[in-house]
Design a binder for these strands. Structure first.
Lengths: 140, 140
DNA sequence: TAAATTTGCTTGTTATTTGCAAGTAAACAA
DNA sequence: TTGTTTACTTGCAAATAACAAGCAAATTTA
């Protein structure tokens, strides 16, 4: 894995050096909003990520401390990926992508948007706590 | 310009079909946080976008309604790009990218982060209003 | 216990995109 | 009228992505 070269010392540019890629953010989405946590789970997602790209992005995310993998308790050839605190801190970014997407892609409205409109901070906190719980409990 | 194909009906995936690209978001950053508004301004940014990529992304952003170009009042061979309401609605996304980047890229801390910590909603509203004012006033 | 399956990749090939350098064209300034 | 500014376009090599196939360890099934 080649090291990421930062193009400037702008914090937005810094973030984009990791996150300016659709696939990275779709993997994070799956980790935040669904119960998906394995290679096979991510491959099964609707957007059909290629196998080599998924392997590459999981490696990048783990090497840069966004996620952490552990061997599954029940199957030794299965890896469980979970968000680290660094990854959990991206939840607000992804929430805002969802808010924007729901506004401009009409069929995408849902309960979560209503919850965010009522109490954005609280909703984000709930998802952060959910991710922390997942990280701590022994995986399936 | 080829039409963007949406890979699913997930609102996050929908957003990423436009925004899952570093350069698009760096152009938006310049429009939100700086007084940059022309091709030459964006070319001069620290991250050194290639000329063909900039032309391509400006076209994509305009064709998809994120920005609007007008001919400069003073020079007819100069175009001024401004955010539309659709683009202004991305300010929260970019603010969160900045918050995350500032947290994990230590030298990036600044006044804006403090302002956001004190009053996120108000700060975002200020930048939205600033963008609307720029859109309405006759450009340089 | 041997064969088939699951799981998580890697490899090879082709297509697309990027990055870089150079060129173009309209507007404007000297 | 010559040079400069501004905003691109074009051509090409290199990097990246998409697709298909293959592989190997662990596990299940016969």
């Amino acid at each position: 894995m080649k090291e990421i070269q930062h193009r400037s010392n702008c914090p937005i540019s810094y973030s984009l050096d990791y996150l300016g890629d659709k696939w990275v953010l779709l993997i994070l989405r799956d980790l935040i909003f669904t119960n998906k946590s394995t290679y096979g789970d991510f491959i099964a997602s609707e957007e059909k990520i290629a196998t080599n790209i998924l392997a590459d992005r999981l490696k990048l995310l783990e090497e840069n401390g966004f996620i952490k993998s552990t061997v599954s308790a029940e199957k030794k050839n299965k890896f469980i990926y979970n968000l680290t605190e660094k990854g959990i801190d991206l939840i607000p970014v992804i929430m805002e992508l969802m808010v924007w997407g729901s506004k401009y892609n009409p069929p995408g409205a849902n309960n979560l948007i209503q919850e965010l409109n009522k109490d954005k901070e609280g909703t984000i906190q709930n998802y952060k706590n959910r991710a922390r719980t997942r990280m701590k409990t022994t995986p399936e």
